[in-house]
Nucleic acid binder design. Structure first.
Lengths: 343, 343
DNA sequence: ATGAAAGCGCTAACAC
DNA sequence: GTGTTAGCGCTTTCAT
């Protein structure tokens, strides 16, 4: 009843072979990269395939080739715009290379078992993790089943695993140097109670550099989560403490947004006149007029590309070394450290 | 050389059958929902599977069952936080029902052909589209190959397709009513030059209601894109026009953020004292202190759930009717229409 | 270069 | 309830 006579069944390579008057093998070869088919044959096959609307069934192909080209993307915190952007880049990059991303969202507290089931049930050829809870369990299963694994911004967990991380040491250092540069002496930190791996690292690097530059770190005010709300909490704690500072380091931009807003609402302190502020990540929101935050930029596309490169290398050469790739960061000066208001 | 003696090969149902001393069918039945296996047999199989680390290969299962449980998620604009959130809900909801989302990002201008290849190459059992460009071509291919399709916030495209949309009529109406309620008379609209489907609809509804309430719509200022930057552009156009208004309708929150920021920077007009503002979507950022925007809330989880429900119903009963599901919206009053500043 | 045949891992009739 | 058999759609030796 459709406008198309062959609508009721998806055509198979047999159908194409029949129509083209060749064998199924010829069809297969026509659609295989390094094939060896006579131009004439190939031509017949192509045209038959076109009229039938034939497409290779990758799942069947995967079954015989032991290669599905499916890649599991284990993701948490998708409402973090930086995360979402990274996932977007990952999915696009993977697609370009012929891989297909299976999106597996997860929450910090959630059961990891189902993720492992998914990876293994669907025979993924690789896994990229960019969730906040670094599941050692996943690494273990991947190792046991020989699934290449790439961790983004996670601690190293073994030799079977590739890591891609931003340069947290430089990120922390640049932030401290910037606060010193603009004359800060007494610094407060706004951070998260249960800091994630990279956050803890950049914070440690910040503290080390700050000390070496003679900055006093007079308080560490923490929010329960590393987002806008957490930043607001940190600001409340800071204001309640009545500690005087001339500079603040926020461990990420989201917290900085909340911190700034709450500071404005609950105090008369002005940024940057009374307090300078540096944050980290340079998400799009950091550049918004109402905030205009000096931040340490990380490039989510570079991170995604490196992760994909590491993964596909692992897939091609399973025994290759697993380097830890470090993605560089750069300081972006804005109004919160006195850079002139852009017009 | 691994810490695990069977590391070199993924166990198959044959391995399990052998170890359990049963047939492969028994293994299959043990892992099939409505099976009929003797408890003793099942027990043996389960334990053998556990010691071997066996998992059903869903791809092989899909091959024989004609059902992969893979669902294509065609997504654009992942850096829109509302979109990201919707995708997150979609992925989780699908996972709960045993479906696996294949993430296929796309850009408005991009070639749709590769998406279709992907859907068909991987034999997806369904497709959900939440990109901004509504590819009629996708709908056509889905129909031709019998792939159930659900469109989110897209125009209706045919009877084979399910639609899930927010209630744009109410969204537009509520916005106009709110501006009228707070005493506005002369209204400007901030919108996008090439409006997406729902944006165009909500705007039309807004205009209709505004007229019926006696509001004057004295200008429609447009940005090139429907995000922060586009809102800023709209504000610039508005300010340059020197048209006086006492109310502004922004077609979405992202534009409202940019509009407000640019208004603050380029003019002395204050919101809400001089101008009231209503936007749409109620994204998280709308509630941020620096903006605190009255908005029309849409619930991305409700949208995702409805889309999944529609899809899974379609998958179970391919011939079922394709209703257009409308998701309700609600007005959230905040400071930009004079709601008291929350503490 | 091409076809025949075996097999990827699984499920589903079908007999027992 | 269980094993046997055939087959899902494809790739890949192996002959030719």
């Amino acid at each position: 009843m459709s406008n198309d006579e062959r609508a009721n069944r998806v055509p198979t390579s047999d159908d194409v072979a029949l129509l083209a008057g060749v064998s199924r093998s010829a069809v297969s070869r026509t659609f295989t990269a390094g094939a060896s088919v006579a131009p004439a044959t190939r031509e017949k096959v192509i045209s038959a395939a076109k009229t039938l609307g034939y497409r290779v069934n990758f799942l069947a192909r995967g079954l015989s080739q032991q290669r599905t080209n499916l890649v599991a993307l284990i993701v948490s915190d998708m409402d973090n715009s930086l995360r979402a952007r990274t996932v977007d880049h990952l999915a696009r990059g993977l697609a370009t290379l012929g891989f297909r991303p299976l999106l597996l969202p997860t929450e910090p507290g959630e059961d990891v078992g189902y993720l492992i089931d998914m990876m293994l049930n669907y025979n993924v050829n690789g896994t990229i993790v960019t969730s906040d809870t670094p599941p050692a369990e996943i690494a273990q299963e991947c190792a046991a089943y020989g699934v290449p694994l790439v961790l983004i911004n996670k601690p190293e967990v073994g030799t079977h695993v590739s890591n891609v991380s931003i340069d947290t040491a430089t990120a922390g250092r640049l932030a401290a140097e910037e606060l010193a540069r603009v004359g800060c002496k007494r610094i407060a930190i706004a951070s998260q109670r249960r800091a994630s791996h990279t956050i803890a690292q950049r914070k440690a690097a910040f503290i080390a550099t700050a000390r070496s530059l003679g900055l006093d770190i007079v308080g560490d005010f923490q929010g329960s989560v590393q987002n806008y709300g957490g930043g607001a909490e940190a600001a409340e704690a800071f204001i309640a403490s009545c500690i005087e500072v001339d500079g603040v380091y926020c461990v990420n931009d989201f917290m900085a947004l909340g911190f700034l807003d709450q500071l404005r609402r609950l105090s008369d302190l002005r940024v940057p006149e009374d307090i300078k502020l540096v944050a980290c990540d340079d998400i799009a929101e950091a550049a918004w007029q109402s905030y205009d935050i000096t931040s340490i930029r990380q490039d989510p596309k570079a991170v995604a590309d490196a992760a994909i490169a590491a993964l596909s290398k692992r897939i091609e050469e399973p025994e290759a070394a697993q380097p830890h790739v470090i993605i560089p960061v750069t300081l972006i000066r804005r109004r919160t450290t006195g850079a002139s208001d852009p017009i």
